[in-house]
């Protein structure tokens, strides 16, 4: 290591001052370039989140559904098919009370059908299906695959699986099912709403922008390191 007085005298040469000025310029520039990429990261996340939480019509979701469709808020218009209703045993309410969920087939205006979890009812409670045309809002869920081994009992199902419900009701169903959160118009037969198992998962992280932000800042530090090393090597040369 050169002595500090040598470093100091070298730092005061014209070249070193110009180098320092460039270094400061580079650091400021790189800091803001990094900040820009950082803000881009946040903006992209916000935009994607806003887009994924906006409700879409179930008919606008392309079949077969993709994993990123699950957890999305969807709207659907149609009428519940009254014979096609089934109870799911041993399900909790949003307050963790024991009971059952009611799953109905909603026949959409387009003629397609989808399974809808209308909500929770106490065990054995009688719940008729509303007759009129309804407009519902809910969260799209993938078919359940757990408890598959349990088997169905006493007219109740265990697993909400569109494939199995399709066989049970003998109708063609869209993939997955909707956990209903809102029904218009409100009828006498709306069971207590339940929280969806899967709510909107986080959107894809803008990896590229995030790492660019970090890299710009690291490059700024690297420039400082190079300047210091250059100063030290140069001083050694002079002595």
């Amino acid at each position: 290591m050169p002595r500090s007085s040598e470093l100091w005298s070298r730092a005061r040469t014209l070249t070193a001052i110009l180098a320092l000025a460039s270094l400061i310029f580079i650091c400021v520039l790189f800091f803001f370039l990094g900040k820009w990429q950082w803000d881009r990261t946040q903006d992209i996340l916000d935009a994607k989140r806003a887009a994924s939480t906006a409700a879409v019509s179930i008919t606008d979701i392309v079949q077969p559904m993709k994993s990123e469709d699950y957890g999305r808020t969807v709207t659907a218009m149609g009428a519940f098919s009254s014979p096609d209703q089934v109870r799911v045993g041993s399900r909790l309410s949003s307050q963790s009370a024991a009971g059952e969920w009611i799953v109905s087939s909603l026949v959409l205006d387009t003629g397609q059908s989808i399974a809808v979890v209308r909500g929770w009812v106490p065990e054995g409670a009688v719940f008729a299906t509303p007759e009129q045309q309804v407009s519902i809002k809910g969260v799209l869920q993938p078919s359940e695959s757990f408890y598959d081994f349990a088997g169905d009992q006493k007219g109740k199902i265990v697993v909400i699986d569109s494939q199995k419900l399709s066989e049970l009701w003998n109708v063609e169903l869209l993939d997955g099912f909707i956990v209903m959160q809102d029904q218009e118009p409100v009828t006498a037969n709306v069971p207590e709403g339940v929280p969806p198992t899967i709510s909107t998962g986080d959107v894809a992280f803008p990896l590229q922008n995030f790492f660019y932000a970090i890299q710009w800042w690291i490059f700024a530090l690297f420039a400082v390191a190079v300047y210091v090393r250059w100063l030290v090597v140069g001083s050694k040369l002079r002595t």
């Binding site: 990896l207 590229q208 690291i218 690297f222």
Partner: peptide, 12 residues
């Protein structure tokens, strides 16, 4: 995206 991020680190 990964390729570009990789270039950033390799460039370092």
């Amino acid at each position: 995206s990964i390729l570009w991020v990789a270039h950033g680190w390799l460039y370092f």
